[in-house]
């Protein structure tokens, strides 16, 4: 499996600087877990942040600051660290994502959203703007053409989809600006499962999906 669609450099810069919203951050981190190309870029970008640490303008810390930390370290050394609770079933999901979803696709409490389309909103993402959800799209099903209020990140975890931009397979990410309309279709024999972060609700072009959106809260 090799990745052909990557995160936009501007999105990676925001990830490195720490200015992405929590929802975008989670999807970006999940792609980064899978993509050595983007990882290498982020490491270079984080050097910019490191430069900000090495700046000359400094606020001194209190003289006792070091001692306080040293005391904590001593205290921790005395206590035997409790073994982390290790449940032995390994999640099939990349680690940033695994804390928000069950361990396997089968165990996800999918909700029917539209014919051929199921979704699951990740609980516990506290973002003030946007949500993260998993979509399960049956083979051959098309998501109605839509644009986005803000940026949308769509990461394919399983299967594949095609849209006006290209074909997206497992590990690929579509990093779309608000001004792009697209109409993805699940184009392989297996269902397509994607992880999607949106900054703002999708904007459907036609009235019918818009009404549907009202009812299903998409």
């Amino acid at each position: 499996m090799s990745i052909h669609h990557h995160l936009n450099d501007a999105t990676l810069m925001a990830y490195a600087a720490g200015t992405l919203s929590e929802s975008m951050n989670l999807v970006a981190a999940t792609h980064l877990s899978l993509c050595p190309v983007c990882r290498q870029k982020v490491e270079q970008m984080e050097t910019i942040g490191a430069g900000s640490l090495e700046s000359e303008a400094l606020l001194p810390v209190r003289t006792e600051a070091l001692n306080q930390v040293m005391n904590l370290i001593d205290l921790e050394a005395e206590q035997t660290a409790p073994e982390p609770a290790n449940d032995h079933i390994k999640s099939v999901f990349p680690s940033p994502l695994s804390q928000f979803v069950p361990k396997d696709y089968e165990d996800i409490p999918w909700r029917s959203t539209a014919p051929g389309l199921k979704s699951f909103v990740l609980p516990g993402i506290q973002s003030r703007s946007g949500t993260v959800r998993l979509f399960k799209i049956a083979p051959g099903v098309t998501i109605p053409e839509h644009g986005h209020g803000g940026t949308e990140l769509t990461l394919v975890l399983k299967g594949s989809f095609s849209d006006e931009i290209g074909r997206f397979k497992a590990g690929d990410i579509a990093d779309l600006d608000g001004d792009i309309d697209h109409q993805p279709i699940a184009d392989s024999a297996e269902e397509c499962i994607c992880l999607i972060a949106t900054e703002q609700p999708l904007r459907f072009k036609n009235m019918v999906p818009r009404i549907m959106q009202y009812f299903v809260g998409m």
């Binding site: 499996m1 090799s2 929590e22 989670l26 999940t30 050595p36 290498q40 990349p94 940033p96």
Partner: peptide, 23 residues
């Protein structure tokens, strides 16, 4: 109060590293 998620390089190492830039 917006978390930052770290990626894990050990994840799904099925994907080969085709970024063999000399860098």
């Amino acid at each position: 109060k917006e978390r930052h998620f770290d990626y894990d390089e050990q994840d799904l190492s099925l994907i080969e590293d085709d970024s063999d830039s000399p860098e």
